[in-house]
Design a protein around this nucleic acid. Sequence first.
RNA 1: GGGGAGAUACUCAAGCGGCCAACGAGGACAGACUGUAAAUCUGUUGGUUCAUACCUUCGAAGGUUCGAAUCCUUCUCUCCCCA
Length: 425
Amino acid sequence: MSNFIDELKWRGMLHDVMPGTEDLLQKEMTKGYIGFDPTADSLGVGNLVQIMTLMHFQKAGHKPMALVGGATGRVGDPSGKSQERNLLEIDQLQHNQDCQRKQLERFLDFNCGANSAELVNNYDWFKDMGFLDFIRVAGKHLTVNYMLAKDSVKSRLETGMSFTEFSYQLIQGYDFYHLWKNEGVKLQMGGSDQWGNITTGTELIRRMAGGEAFALTTPLIKKADGSKFGKSEGGNIWLDPEKTSPYHFYQFWLNAADSDAGSFLRIFSLKNKEEIEALEAEHAEAPHTRVLQRALAEEVTERVHSRADLDNAISASDILFGKGTEESLRSLNSATLMNIFEGVDQFELSRDQLSAGIPIIDLLAESTAVFPSKGEARKMLQANGVSINKQKVGADYVLDTKDLLNDQLILVQKGKKNYYLIRLS
RNA sequence: GGGGAGAUACUCAAGCGGCCAACGAGGACAGACUGUAAAUCUGUUGGUUCAUACCUUCGAAGGUUCGAAUCCUUCUCUCCCCA
């Protein structure tokens, strides 16, 4: 059994840990869990931190458990929220849970003997519990004073908070108690914003049964410039390939800033300390080759998607961002192009429209949805931000069949990094 | 319950009868420079459009006026002080 805490420490993944946790982990194979909130129908890269935590936990010889919050999702976690949340519809929640469960299954080993991973849903033990039972069994053991002292509650006392959200910590706390009592789970992990909820659980275990349980949290991931991690060009980066294509996913990691790449590699890769430090040394020698970003993007994309998806993403990136010129684009056959660019946003156009000649602005704003309006298309064209097949074009450019690659495709570039593929229907 | 202050675009924040689609800052997007990095500099940032045009915006609804984000009335909400 390797030292899990030390592993998290050097990776910069340890924020807070309850005294005695390390002793426990060194002494015995421990069951530990992390909860996932079904607020969306896919996990995002932010959740990847917790997934990695569970993976390291399992690698260290312990038994990881992922909890899908079917019950807690109905209530809404106030942690880190400055406003009351809107409740999700029940069938939406159900859908989200199903999607998240499938994703979680990919990352852990569910068939490796004693420390095989497990997946549970807290709705299973809450669905048959009545409100009166709950407040008698769980509620009696904690004082409102105790609950009010939590940051998640305290920060909302000014603006207001519903009883529903106030009770959230008690529900999550009861989860821990339930798993402790019935499954022998002794550790709950999570993001640093979960510390309050987790300690409510350990407190509940202590008061209800005189038992001992432990807690550990990971820091909130922030980029070096202070901005939020996990977003790109306005959107969240999802693990679901339908929501964020493997190409975009790969690009997201590849675009990590130098100042972030090292720490991201520690958190999101399974590489060991020596490997990472070697890569960093190599990167320092020749920053422009961006070995850190490549190593990061490759490992994470392969784990979340697949080797084949990764290969395509790399090929597409090489073509789009390499030294490639219009000639090299024209030299590729369309089957290859279509395959490689699967993850690039695509639009269709009829041959008739094109052969009649179509002004660039109409093409981008009307025939396709590259831009939401002609005004924006014009603006970007005037700012010199649009390329057709890697050639900058002006606002008065008119396209026709001569612009087709392989008589099939047109590659549109908006800004430096946004590519669109227009193909004949 | 009494008194006071306020509600402006993604956020903060000016404007206090025409020169306001609304100063400025941040954010976002784009250009240059680079390494598909950071920093820096430049441009854009209500919509349709491209024209010295029209439409929709300044909490909501009415009103005064040739003309209102700016004045009046009512309403809704927020904050502060006193009880």
